[in-house]
């Protein structure tokens, strides 16, 4: 118990130090480094939010791009009428509400059906929005005019990623988190144990969606214009899914660990060898499933316990 407490304190201290260090990065770095970090924070927040619901319940969702895209569009439409912060909050709220409606109607689907449904949902919203823009508004894209600096975007996403990780950690400590994991273990048993499974699932799905919509809205500030194909690009859904699985579940910081190598790899490969990126991504999937079933989290924990702890004990730090 004491040990666990010490671990938790050490982890908290580590996070605080890392956060403060990261918050000062913009002072020293070039525009390119900043943009990589922005992408990284966005992916960390998205993967953590995805894993918060899908990792725990094993409802594999491909609707990340749908909520992400909703966030982008809310910002693109709203920033003309209201201040940017209001538009960002509106994006999160609308993402939450849409997920509430979607969740109520679809969360009784299990397994592959849920996967395909969420993928279809993204495509459906994409197509209908595209049609609505072309037919009703006679346009294909929307311009985004804001004067938000890159530093502000950087700090906002850093805070968003931290809040998502800490929030996901916190929810795992309370009853809601236990209920969520119980559903992942066995939904029927969870229901018989008195858990209102529908309410738990829908609330958590909507929470995770609101983070996705918020991140989408913040990233939209960087785009000069958006259209439905940019906003509802399913690549986001897949990349987030891989990051979360590469990181592994069970720990709130797991998806973040997975997002880091993936973003760096895609930054490096996507620009120079786009086809090879897709091959590498595919091999990544296969390797995760066969050789890293617990993700990088398990690897890190194993290294920590079997190597770092003895080393530290030997050096009489612990």
């Amino acid at each position: 118990m004491l040990d666990a407490l010490r671990n938790a304190r050490a982890a908290a201290a580590l996070i605080v130090i890392a956060a403060i260090a990261l918050a000062f990065v913009p002072l020293f770095s070039s525009g390119y480094v900043m943009s990589v970090f922005i992408l990284l924070f966005a992916n960390v927040a998205l993967a953590t939010a995805w894993s918060f619901f899908s990792g725990a319940t094993r409802y594999i969702s491909l609707a990340t791009a749908a909520f992400f895209g909703i966030g982008i569009y809310v910002l693109a439409i709203a920033h003309v009428y209201v201040p940017v912060p209001v538009a960002l909050i509106a994006a999160a709220i609308i993402g939450f509400l849409v997920a509430l409606v979607v969740g109520l109607s679809t969360l009784r689907l299990r397994g592959v059906y849920f996967v395909v449904f969420t993928f279809g949902l993204t495509e459906l919203i994409h197509q209908v929005l595209n049609w609505w823009e072309v037919k009703i508004n006679h346009t294909v894209s929307r311009f985004i005019f804001t004067d938000v600096s890159n530093i502000a975007i950087y700090e906002t996403l850093l805070v968003a990623a931290l809040i998502t990780i800490v929030g996901s950690w916190y929810v795992n400590q309370i009853r809601l988190g236990y209920a969520l994991r119980a559903i992942g273990e066995d939904e029927t048993v969870a229901r018989h144990a008195g858990i209102n499974t529908t309410r738990v699932k829908v609330v958590c799905f909507a929470l995770s969606a609101s983070v996705m919509a918020f991140v989408g809205a913040v990233l939209a500030l960087r785009y000069p214009y958006v259209d439905a194909s940019i906003a509802f690009n399913s690549t986001w859904s897949f990349q987030v899914l891989i990051a979360a699985l590469l990181g592994g579940g069970g720990r709130a910081w797991g998806p973040a660990i997975g997002a880091i190598p993936l973003v760096l790899l895609s930054e490096y490969l996507a620009g120079t060898f786009p086809h090879h990126f897709s091959i590498a991504l595919g091999l990544c999937f296969v390797v995760i499933v066969y050789f890293l079933p617990g993700g990088l989290t398990r690897l890190v924990l194993r290294l920590y316990h079997s190597w770092l702890v003895p080393q530290l004990k030997k050096a009489e730090v612990l």
């Binding site: 897949f238 999937f285 499933v289």
Partner: peptide, 14 residues
Amino acid sequence: VLVTFGLFFVFQGL
């Protein structure tokens, strides 16, 4: 789903 999706990426990339 993960493995066959990975295969999809590999085949498509090739």
